[in-house]
Design a protein around this nucleic acid. Structure first.
Lengths: 113, 113
DNA sequence: GTAACGTATCAACATTTCTTGATATGTTAA
DNA sequence: TTAACATATCAAGAAATGTTGATACGTTAC
């Protein structure tokens, strides 16, 4: 498991980009297929029932987000999960679920000056 | 930690909806603020530098996704993180990072019939 | 009461994202 | 070489999402 790591405000944009890549059903389904290991595009295509260019589009979104890597072999392209990005996503979600280290005392009641 | 739980294909849509709520910088930043506990809208507004109606829009997206709950007190509205939804997100990400229980043997090489 | 406030909602528009069909590129088979 | 194939990319349109300013609604202060 990754160190302490309080997610900083600056990370919000980065996190948002990562989650955006996971914000589409087809892309999540593709990721789920890739849990089993490397898959070639044609397999994903068949199983997901997605048109060729559509799938290609979504795979690129995942790739741009760093969530998958691709490998060419002859005329086939194989995609697989890249664990690092998932680890980042995992950490961000965990941090959101965790109160940050306290520096001061909690403000109790009172709002807006 | 939540049980075994292989994420099923059917869950892809649900997961996507959850991640969509986290796919915007302002929303992630709001969630980060809420880690400290309940916050009233005006506080979020000040700290995030977001126009009133804009913030209201984003808070509603988070609420619709179940990621936050709101509470009215007089003219103020307080938002806080709802841990359950975060737990679900957490589990989904973890599952994506984990090979599923194997039912058959891994296919080695060969592609597309 | 009336006014000022905090928040939500709405309508219009801007922007982004997705889908589709067409075409391009590289690869193997004949 | 030519043809069939697997995949990527592009352009155009469709759909979804985000932004802004205006307005509505309930609440507290006067």
């Amino acid at each position: 498991m990754t160190p302490a790591a309080d997610t900083q405000p600056t990370d919000a944009a980065k996190a948002a980009r990562l989650f955006h890549a996971l914000s589409d059903e087809t892309r999540v389904a593709a990721m789920q297929m890739l849990r089993n290991g490397e898959r070639c595009v044609c397999e994903l295509q068949d199983e997901l029932g997605a048109a060729q260019s559509r799938l290609s589009f979504h795979l690129r979104v995942l790739k741009d987000a760093g969530l998958v890597t691709d490998r060419r072999d002859g005329r086939w392209a194989y995609y697989s999960i890249s664990p690092d990005a998932l680890q980042v996503a995992h950490d961000v979600v965990r941090d959101l679920a965790t109160p940050p280290a306290r520096r001061g005392l909690k403000v109790v009641g009172g709002c807006c000056g």
